[in-house]
Design a protein around this nucleic acid. Sequence first.
DNA 1: CTGAAATAAGACAAATTTGTCCTAATATAA
DNA 2: TTATATTAGGACAAATTTGTCTTATTTCAG
Lengths: 143, 143
Amino acid sequence: MFSKRCEYAIKIMTFIAHQQKKSDKKVDVDAISKAIDSPKAFTAKILQDLVKSDLLVSSRGRFGGFSLPDQFNISLSQIIEAIDGKKLLEGCVLGFGTCSEKNPCIVHHHLKSARQHLKIKLQETNLEIIAKRVNEKNAYFKE
Amino acid sequence: MFSKRCEYAIKIMTFIAHQQKKSDKKVDVDAISKAIDSPKAFTAKILQDLVKSDLLVSSRGRFGGFSLPDQFNISLSQIIEAIDGKKLLEGCVLGFGTCSEKNPCIVHHHLKSARQHLKIKLQETNLEIIAKRVNEKNAYFKE
DNA sequence: CTGAAATAAGACAAATTTGTCCTAATATAA
DNA sequence: TTATATTAGGACAAATTTGTCTTATTTCAG
Ligand code: FES
Ligand code: FES
């Protein structure tokens, strides 16, 4: 469903959101990759992409790190779009160039409602909600 | 959402179902790859996998080809499982080893209903229904 | 100013997926 | 029986994704 990069990206974002609920400190690559059990250098690359997409703010140098942008509640669909693009939510499931009502593929109508439902859920689910759940239920970041 | 192989597999199966509605003749690789606009040798590999999964029957030699097994209406979820495995419908969206209610990941509950909806749609949608639509609406196999 | 600690960025490497090619095995028509 | 048309299968090649390494750049403490 999601690429590996995207899986990491979701874990990264939720971890940072969770940390920032506890303190305002920036979070660095080392802490992130340890917490979510991901390869450090690869994690750093994904962080760069998230910064380029304005889903994170970075600061370099001593005591630098990553933090969420202010007044900006981020949804899963924003993270997915930043990393994997629009294909999952907007593209044709059979890989045709476009997905539209006017020119639907053979399965378009059969999966339309399910895809719409998924899209709404991914838009509704945001870091605020997830971070709250992590606190409440002590959900985990790695196995 | 689906791998390229799985996209081709769905097109392959629907094309064969459609052809067999018109005549009982077996369908060969050449006709399939031309109809769905897929690389021939790669298509042949996918066909082999579908035969191994018992979703198709093959016959070799002159006038050989592929046909649907008798008395066996195949759903999209069966095709997807045969080619991409259980990951999409049963695996954890964040890539953890297991997906369960007892040990849910941080997004498990948020996406549960959407995934369930998708699963049901993929189980409901079968080749009979799709092939019928192809006939009714003149839907296409390639762009 | 200098050193240490952090992100940025580019080149490289490994793994996986996608796709190609060649040969073997098989079945049928003639 | 023989030629031909088909699937089966293995080795290989290309493309993409995943992951690593090294160096530059930035920031701040002291
Ligand atoms: S055209 Fe294929 S899913 Fe919409
Ligand atoms: S445990 Fe992650 S989706 Fe169920």
